[in-house]
Nucleic acid binder design. Structure first.
Lengths: 139, 139
DNA sequence: CTAAACCATGAACCTGGGTTCAAGGTCAAG
DNA sequence: CTTGACCTTGAACCCAGGTTCATGGTTTAG
């Protein structure tokens, strides 16, 4: 299989495959007589695995950790399971941050609606965002 | 005010203040006789504004947009209001992505619990993540 | 025979928001 | 008069996950 075929079949691009090789995510491939990389279905499975793991939020470094265990001849189940638990906790932390950010933005949006542009003096940069002189004129 | 005092008062570091200056977020400051940057309270307000806007999820480029309008003598209310609305939509998109990711990770976590490591052959990389040969042995 | 469509390599570049480094000037206290 | 804590500059570096570029070889269709 040529590199372009591999890339296409796995939903990646040719430079990305070479990049994965440099990052030790893919083994040094065989070469055809003309010097072209020659891939097999195991390589395709591997790239597909990388993309699947990536779409589950794993970083390339974490994926390499899994592949290294596999290449060592061991089942990576335990490691993967821990990785998933940690990632889930991380996703939940990030979601909590986004909820807080959403609330903050909603607060700012309401301020923007209550605030009369004509009342914005030159002394502040933006009374919507600036919380220093906080109070808003009573309606 | 010295740069270190400004940084400290605004909750930033000295290199960050210089960085903001390079990024045109802060005007070229006055210099004291010894060549030191000399800041006033308007500068402090400005840095505080930048930090407040950043903590509401605005990028430095967006913040510069607001400051440019201000420096132009106009009230940036309308622009800021739009920015906030867009940012809110973006945060909600990102949250939806994270919810999907959370579900995916939960699914993988359950798979990990159902899957018997002893059954993981050498033929796959990791049956928890790999969805190719999906079915899991009935309990 | 030539043009298109592949492939090869190494190196540089991108985003964002800074941090770190190297080499040197300034100023107050002890 | 020296030590330490400031300040100055430009340039390089960090993270991740690639993309882009320059230059050149190979193969296939017309």
């Amino acid at each position: 299989m040529l590199i372009g075929e591999l890339a296409h079949a796995a939903g990646a691009t040719t430079p990305t495959i070479r990049f994965y090789e440099r990052q030790q995510l893919l083994p040094t491939p065989l070469r055809s007589g003309n010097g072209y990389r020659d891939y097999n279905t195991a390589d395709l499975d591997r790239v597909r695995f990388i993309r699947a793991a990536q779409s589950s939020g794993l970083s390339l470094a974490e994926i390499r950790g899994i592949l290294d265990i596999r290449d060592d001849g061991q089942p990576p189940c335990r490691h993967v399971s821990d990785l998933i638990d940690n990632k889930l906790a991380e996703v939940r932390r990030r979601m909590a941050e986004l909820v807080a950010l959403e609330q903050e933005l909603q607060r700012l949006g309401e301020r923007a609606r209550l605030l009369n542009p004509a009342e914005c003096g030159d002394s502040d940069i933006c009374r919507i965002i600036d919380t220093a002189r906080d109070p808003i004129p009573a309606p």
